[in-house]
Design a protein around this nucleic acid. Structure first.
Length: 500
RNA sequence: GCCCCCAUCGUCUAGCGGCCCAGGACGUGGCCCUCUCAAGGCCAAAACAGGGGUUCGAUUCCCCUUGGGGGCACCA
């Protein structure tokens, strides 16, 4: 197979705007994008909005925003136009009708006048008899003349594909090889609904053909209707694109697919399968891209850190894995941390800023630039910066008195330690790591305390929290005046013990 | 009920007949470093679903069973 690149491909991502943009969509779009960029081909975004009943107005915007956020952009699409416009299927109704007519005239499709009620009845019967649930072929037996007359008379009808009764069809998936299915289990599927709009099966095949798509990379939920698609393409006598069906994502336990309900409940645990949520949770697009790229694809037996440009270079259809993959959010945290640490400090500062501001802090550049390197190895998401470093932007901190008590120390001893530390620091011209650490270590030793005991008290006093960036660097950022003020406060806080 | 797909550590995976008493990563446990928390370094435990074949030789090829997933809509 020479699909790995040399020939420029034309690929597409064709979602339906019926809901939120999911990880699976992100991955499908990503792989398509990677192949297009790698080969110097084109990536097309096509909106499959042929079902007005399930249409969600905001869905397309969320999709576009989410994909762009990931760094995936397209050469042709509803918002950017292109030579094969329109790229919204609802605007291509006539095109599909024309092709449906072609099949009807060629005897490869027929009008069906059966009502939904009758079809439901037939299905019920089949279910009871434990038969395959297929259309019973009533209208297939109509003469073309009669069918035409009834349609002419305005009788509501759909267009069905006339699947061959005998034999079988073999379609080929790049990852799975040939898939052969008996024609008798392939339904006379509806191509055009009674409202005149095409169904996915016809619309997608027509558009892929018209838009010159060379590789169809889509979710494996299409595998079961793949034979039908093969029939449609062959009925038209078209050249078949290469088909690649991606594995599905399973819930973290690996048992089954995630339900809608589970998906929305995830957010309570600080994770989500929706791209937009991940962004708001403080995940980096780099982290998410790296993570999803490796769900169903691999490069070799050791490399796992990839940026988008890396992936453009290294992605390969041949290394795709057809088995289902469980979503592993702890691995997302790992990749996100990796990418946070690999970001230049100023870039990280730029990205952290909105999260700090979103938490209500007024963020000045000077402080932010000093703080960012201190938290870079300590945060997993950008949102973690709030808990880790919010106090830097606070005028006053409010430590819990009991936290100010050093390990294995009494409140009185702790207050005394703070008083002594105050004296030491007050005598220093500047407070930074170099000038501060040794004098305080000496103080600890003099008082018979471990460095950890003394530093722990000071950490809580100065930062207001027991987990913080390194003490001396933090004090340097906060500045001598505020540091002294906060340490002076220790005695006050400890002299009025909390009601025990 | 019918059709299709999938099957290596808990999870993501490498492996395309001998290099594998199976390699990497996440997570987990331990140690080191250390002012907290991280980051970083080192070490450890942890898998070829089961049964038949094919072969001198199967994780790798074939079949069956089992398990998992998808579909059987005037949804995509």
């Amino acid at each position: 197979m020479s699909d790995n690149g040399l020939q420029p491909v034309r690929v597409r991502f064709a979602p339906s705007p019926t809901g939120r943009t999911h990880l699976g969509s992100g991955r499908t779009a990503l792989y398509n994008y990677l192949l297009a960029r790698q080969t110097g081909g084109q990536f097309i975004l096509r909106i499959e909005d042929t079902d007005q009943k399930r249409f969600v107005p905001e869905a397309e915007q969320e999709l576009v925003d989410s994909l762009r956020w990931l760094g995936v952009d397209w050469d042709e699409g509803p918002d950017v136009g292109g030579p094969y416009a329109p790229y919204r299927q609802s605007e291509r109704k006539e095109i599909y009708q024309q092709y449906a007519q072609q099949l009807v005239h060629g005897g490869q499709a027929y009008y069906c006048f059966c009502t939904a009620a009758r079809l439901a009845e037939v299905r019920k019967q089949q279910q009871a008899n434990k038969e395959p649930l297929l259309y019973d072929g009533t209208c297939r037996r109509l003469s073309t003349a009669e069918a035409a007359r009834r349609a002419e008379a305005g009788e509501p009808h759909v267009v069905r594909f006339k699947t061959p009764r005998d034999g079988s069809i073999t379609v080929s998936d790049l990852l799975r090889g040939d898939i052969t299915v008996e024609n008798r289990v392939v339904d006379d599927f509806i191509l055009v609904k009674s409202d005149g709009l095409a169904l996915y099966h016809l619309a997608a095949m027509v558009d892929d053909q018209l838009m010159g798509i060379t590789h169809v990379i889509r979710g494996s939920e299409w595998l079961s209707t793949f034979p039908l698609h093969g029939h449609i393409i062959r009925a038209f006598g078209w050249q078949e694109p290469v088909f690649v069906h991606l594995s599905v994502f399973l819930r973290p336990s690996g048992k089954g697919k995630m339900s809608k309900r589970e998906s929305s409940q995830l957010l309570q645990d600080g994770v989500s399968v929706f791209l937009k949520d991940l962004r708001e949770l403080g995940y980096l697009p780099e982290g998410v891209v790296n993570w999803i790229s490796l769900m169903g694809w691999s490069y070799d037996d050791r490399t796992e850190f990839f940026t988008l440009p890396d992936l453009v270079e290294k992605f390969s259809l041949q290394k795709l894995n057809p088995s289902p993959a469980a979503i592993n959010f702890t691995k997302l945290d790992h990749f996100n941390g990796l990418h946070i640490r690999s970001l230049p400090v100023d870039e990280l500062a730029r990205r952290v800023r909105p999260f700090l501001e979103g938490a209500g802090y007024t963020v000045d550049d000077g402080t932010l630039n000093q703080v960012t390197p201190l938290i870079q190895t300590r945060i997993v998401t950008l949102a973690d910066s709030v808990a880790m470093a919010g106090f830097f932007f606070e005028e006053h901190v409010h430590p819990e008195p009991e936290q100010l008590v050093g390990k294995k120390m009494t409140p009185q001893e702790s207050a005394q330690a703070a008083r002594r530390a105050y004296q030491v620091l007050d005598g220093l011209p500047v407070i930074d790591h170099e000038t501060t650490e040794q004098p305080l270590r000496d103080l600890a030793e003099e008082m018979g305390l471990s460095a950890g005991q003394l530093f722990g008290i000071l950490r809580v006093a100065v930062t207001g929290q027991s987990v913080s960036p390194p003490l001396f660097e933090s004090m340097a950022v906060i500045g001598k005046d505020k540091v002294l003020e906060r340490i002076a406060n220790v005695a006050t806080l400890l002299s009025s013990p909390p009601t025990a």
